[in-house]
Design a protein around this nucleic acid. Structure first.
Ligand SMILES: [Mn+2]
Ligand SMILES: [Mn+2]
Ligand SMILES: [Zn+2]
Ligand SMILES: [Zn+2]
Lengths: 149, 149
DNA sequence: GACGATAATGAGAAAGATTATCATTTGCAA
DNA sequence: TTGCAAATGATAATCTTTCTCATTATCGTC
């Protein structure tokens, strides 16, 4: 199912760099995560992982996302709906926020440095150092007034 | 346990205004909520409600907060930790955000109109109308450099 | 390349929060 | 006051996540 000398995914390398034991399952999950550009929950990650290697259990997916999050490899997101969602804590992808379409549930990412510094300043002024920002906005597609019938 | 002609709490009145049947339990929960100025979870609301009227069940507290939220009387908050927390959706109290102390868990409220309009503008620019803002920041008390030993 | 200590895994039980079920009770309009 | 739809209490069910423990795999060492 995998080429003998196939190189590891970026996340698998990170895993090794952190001194974490690189098991087959972790390699698979790391690959799946590196390959994703959305915000899958654990069930969805499990589905994708099984495609790559069927002998993996959902317990291991839960354990691995927790491990990766604790090691700064993954970021946990909460868009409501009761299940955690994950994405790679990517250095070059940069910190970003999320807009959720109220009707479709689609997640749209955005960055805004003005927002970054405003939050930083507000918190500073209250006597705190900013540790984590948990922000997502829900929006509804603007109805464009039609230019004539 | 309650004066015969004691006036209803502001929330109980709201409940009646919305055409919701005003049961004894709802009156009690409404009173407890009106009386709270923090962000209790359901277990905590249940504890407080039982103090007022012991013949109330936690199932009813769950049902009532859901009902009140659906009717715009309550706002559900998520500060992490796995349980929903609630506060009155107060008109004059105004929309606000929350800063959570990373060390103590204490919740500190703040308002900021610049933040309000910045978020509004960002979302607008992306082609959306802002429906809900879910924002909380975690911070750690700034260490004040001591002015001499 | 084999060995062994140690950590990871799989399967399922358990935990914790919330919702559903259903027989009984209650609010409220007539 | 009566009647009926709706609400409640007790508890089962559901859903997500964590835990348990016997088995298996990794990786440093020989
Ligand atoms: Mn920007
Ligand atoms: Mn949550
Ligand atoms: Zn993202
Ligand atoms: Zn608040």
């Amino acid at each position: 199912m995998k080429e003998p000398n196939s190189p590891d995914s970026p996340l698998a390398d990170l895993c090794r760099q952190r001194g974490l034991k690189l098991t087959g399952q972790r390699r698979t999950i790391a690959f799946v995560l590196s390959d994703s550009d959305d915000h899958p929950d654990v069930e969805e990650l499990y589905r994708r992982a099984v495609e790559v290697d069927p002998r993996i259990s959902i317990a291991t997916v839960y354990r691995t996302v927790r491990l990766f999050e604790e090691n700064g490899i993954l970021q946990r997101r909460d868009f409501g709906g009761g299940r955690a969602r994950y994405e790679v804590a990517d250095g070059d992808h940069g910190d970003h926020y999320h807009l959720i379409d109220a009707d479709t549930g689609k997640v749209i990412e955005f960055e805004n440095t003005e927002l970054d510094s405003l939050l930083e300043g507000i918190v500073r002024q209250m006597g705190y150092d900013l540790v984590t920002t948990r922000l997502s906005v829900v929006g509804r597609r603007t109805v464009k007034p039609r230019t004539r019938g």
